[in-house]
Nucleic acid binder design. Structure first.
Length: 665
RNA sequence: GCCGGGAUAGCUCAGUCGGUAGAGCAGCUCACUCGUAAUGAGCAGGUCAGGAGUUCGAAUCUCCUUCCCGGCUCCA
């Protein structure tokens, strides 16, 4: 093809332009405008994101990627990971590098340092400073392609790169490898080239990258962490450095600001500030106590849940916290789940006792206490069951990951014919319940048979998994697969909820189980007078009350809706002489069951008391003075309202509060 | 469990070179009695997470334990 052959490129707006064959994205950007050329970091040619410098040799569609786009930021972050690795090599000679992808909001790179050296926080500053120097050198990212053999030679002293190349060429690539190498057998390599033409850094990489390191400025290294090679705890632990990178300083600052805002919602901080719960060191890791205010919220959650379960056809049961080991031997927990259990209590001359990590075996025994008829099915047994799990020390986290928790747990015993309908019914039930608590953005996840820890046959698992899928599909929600994520006894559907700032939380789980009924030899008498084996559905809707509490706390940033607020109304007399009236107002509210406190004038100014109530995120602050005592009114300062209202008739306020609470607002 | 970082008053934090601790807020008392996000003064509050070691002397240096934070793995 001659150098002046023309190609036709189609721009995103549908217009076409002609260029010389071999023109690059950079040429196209420059021909459109100087500003675009400056902002460009990559190009999308026929749907594929490529380097700006990649020559285009045929008619194509093209879009210029600027840094301020999702694709652009990904390129930026991936390039920043290379820059970081280069800085690490400069400062830590002999380092080995593994993988360094872009991730949500940032990037990381995994390293192995010689002599078991570890990065510390001070190293992050040095590495970041070195990155800035390298960025200032304006090194060019240059793509090269090699065959596999040359690639292996090039990275001969880099065992992780060698493993990646071998995997790709052997066709056994793992997911991460596609970040690094193209799928066509060629090994893509990027070099960072200095202005004098020398090569400063080489990496195995699919790309694309920004044109030069000077494009990378708005970045920050955030933390250092251990990470297992291939995410496998049986393999080498590497040193991972996380960073974030953005199109400009303003976007970086905005990101850091978002992190700060999310920190303000942290349930651990809010739990302290609002006096809801604590984790006394004396009790032990992952074991919470709920204070009166937190206890109130929890009671309200439980009360509402009980009412819904009663309406939903559940029967209430109760079971102890400990049991003889035999029960968990029969259930398979001691074989499959022992590492999640607290060690046993040894009693002289008796069998061992265990704290329960799950409620299911107990509910099974309740089912088994009689001969059951098909007429009793589906039997739905519900309990707020407190369980204890020996979580590994590094995973305990606030209320979302604890060692003692209460599940809103139920086990549904039903026939094979009923199971799809029962799962569907449970899904509908949970979505309604979660919506009542103010969550309304969901998707579903279907977790399948674990690779190693699973009981039962493939056929049973397939049937159970298929039943869950059939139940989930009509819900009209996205269904995401989670291969290998099921429990040891059955697959599960989990409901994932997005909160007010877009984070997702695993809430409810619904599991279908053919195994435990068999292990416990459960049966019921059918209409044919024969024995049949029931199916079991395990389901917890809040997940755990502790976790759900944390999710709500973060979702609402501590400002619980009025129906859940530990204190719904604070009554503030303007001066001591209004105490009697304030007391009368409070009594009136308490008569209707509203949680009301009085903040008296003694020792404290009105302004400060308003502040205290507002800080505690009380939904309604009532200020009562001479005019109110005279007229039977209140001043209403509603949470979130711009200005307080004056002279509202007490009964009018009560009505307003009543309707808000009734609507669970 | 693994890697990194931590623990000083109820909370947030300061504490220099190793010489046994300090502030603000919260609490209590008194004064003030006030109409919508911090009135003033005073008082009290600490085995510096726990233990061992080094030292004439440890909040400070070393080791162990507990607990917390950020990740990895795991998970409701």
């Amino acid at each position: 093809m001659s150098s002046n052959a023309l190609i036709t490129l189609t721009l995103p707006d549908g217009s076409t332009r002609e260029y010389e064959s071999g023109s690059s994205g950079a040429d196209v950007a420059a021909s459109i405008g100087a500003r675009l050329a400056k902002a460009a970091v990559a190009a999308i040619v026929d749907g594929e994101v490529v380097d700006l410098s990649r020559p285009i040799t045929g008619d194509s569609s093209i879009a210029i990627v600027t840094a301020a786009s999702d694709e652009g930021r990904e390129v930026l972050r991936h390039s920043a990971a290379h820059l970081m690795a280069q800085a690490v090599f400069d400062l830590f000679p002999g380092a080995k590098y593994a993988i360094g992808p872009a991730i949500a909001d940032g990037f990381y790179y995994d390293f192995e340092l010689p002599n078991e050296t570890r990065f510390n926080d001070a190293d992050l500053e040095r590495i970041e400073a070195r990155m800035r120097e390298l960025s200032a050198e304006d090194q060019t990212f240059v793509r090269k392609e090699y065959d596999a053999q040359s690639g292996l030679e090039l990275f001969a002293d880099q065992p992780y790169k060698v493993e990646i190349i071998r995997n790709v060429t052997a066709g056994t690539a793992e997911d991460d490898d596609s970040e690094e190498v193209g799928g066509d057998g060629t090994v893509g390599v990027y070099e960072n080239v200095r202005s004098d033409g020398t090569v400063a850094y080489v990496d195995l990489c699919r790309g694309p990258h920004v044109p030069t390191t000077a494009r990378l400025g708005a970045f920050k290294l955030t933390r250092v962490a251990g990470a297992y090679w291939r995410g496998d705890e049986k393999r080498q632990q590497l040193q991972r450095i996380y960073g974030t990178a953005w199109e400009d300083g303003k976007a970086l600052a905005a990101h850091l600001h978002r992190l700060e805002e999310a920190e303000k919602r942290d349930h651990r901080k809010l739990g302290l500030d609002l006096d809801l719960f604590s984790f006394p060191e004396e009790i032990g890791s992952g074991l919470a106590v709920f204070h009166p205010r937190g206890g109130t919220v929890r009671r309200l959650m439980e009360d509402y849940s009980r009412q819904r379960h009663a309406d939903g056809g559940y029967e209430f049961v109760n079971s102890p916290h400990i049991t003889k080991s035999q029960l968990f031997e029969t259930s398979g927990h001691l074989e499959w789940y022992a590492e999640g259990m607290f060690p046993p209590m040894h009693l002289d001359g008796e069998t061992d006792y265990y704290l329960k990590p799950m409620n299911c075996p107990f509910h099974i025994l309740i089912f088994k206490s009689h001969t059951r008829s098909y007429r009793e099915l589906p039997m739905r047994l519900f309990e707020f069951g407190t369980v204890y799990r020996y979580e590994k020390s590094g995973v305990v986290h606030g209320l979302t990951r604890v060692r003692g928790m209460t599940q809103d747990d139920a086990h549904i015993f039903c026939t094979r014919e009923q199971m799809v309908e029962e799962v569907q019914r449970a899904l509908t039930f949970v979505l309604g319940l979660l919506r009542d608590f103010g969550l309304d953005d969901f998707y579903l996840e279907l977790s399948t048979r674990p690779k190693e820890k699973a009981i039962g046959t493939e056929v049973e698992w397939d049937e159970a998994t298929d039943a869950l899928r059939r139940a989930a599909e009509p819900m009209g929600l996205d269904l995401v697969m989670d291969e290998g994520g099921g429990a040891f006894y059955g697959p599960k559907i989990s409901v994932q909820a997005r909160d007010a700032i877009g984070r997702t939380w695993q809430m409810s789980t619904i599991q279908l189980d053919f195994q435990l009924p068999a292990r416990f030899d459960l049966n019921f008498v059918g209409s044919d007078n024969d024995k049949h084996r029931p199916i079991m559905i395990h389901r917890a809707l809040f997940g755990s009350i502790e976790r759900f509490f944390a999710v709500l706390l973060e979702h609402y940033a501590g400002a619980f809706p009025a129906w859940l607020s530990p204190v719904q109304v604070s009554v503030l007399p303007v001066a001591d002489r209004h105490e009697d009236y304030a007391s009368a107002v409070a009594t009136r509210l308490k008569t209707d069951g509203y949680r009301t406190e009085i903040l008296n004038a003694h020792n404290d100014t009105l302004g400060n008391r308003v502040r205290r109530a507002k800080t505690q995120k009380v939904p309604f602050v009532l200020v009562v003075g001479d005019e109110d005592a005279e007229a039977g009114t209140v001043g209403v300062n509603a949470r979130g309202a711009d200005t307080p209202e004056r002279a509202i008739a007490l009964e009018e306020f009560v009505g307003r509060l009543a309707s808000q609470v009734a609507e669970r607002g």
